[in-house]
Amino acid sequence: MSFGQAILVAVLAGAGTYLVMHRTLTRIILGLAMLGNAVNLLILTSGGTPGEAPVIGRTGEFTDPVPQALVLTAIVIGFGVLSFLLSMAYRSWTIDGNDEVEDDIADRRLADEPDEVVDHGEPT
């Protein structure tokens, strides 16, 4: 793994993680896209040094083809997941005019009634 690629993976993963921490779904999606690219780059670098395509008849230093196949699959999956999330963000926007990820309603209700939780929570 070259130093430049390592830096790029780190920057993408860092920025992606920061964006995923937000409540707005569009930012989360951007963050997930960055994280996905960081991971894909990581797979690509796991194949070792770049070289010739490993095709019969060619000579020289071959590059490992497996990570490239893996990356291709990971990209396809990432494409599918991101388009699904985008449509969810759109749906969320048509329903209530924003795309914030809200808290679990039932959790919130329980947290609002602390006394009741204590009543049931100590069976012994």
């Binding site: 989360i28 997930l32 194949g47 699904f84 969810m88 969320s92 990820v101």
Partner: peptide, 27 residues
């Protein structure tokens, strides 16, 4: 949509951890 978002986002992050693990194992 609300609960689905949590589910999808967490599972996507999980997938990325898994791919990272797979990539490092391959490396």
């Amino acid at each position: 949509i609300r609960s689905g978002t949590t589910y999808v986002v967490l599972n996507v992050v999980e997938s990325m951890v898994l791919v990272t693990g797979v990539a490092l194992i391959f490396a």
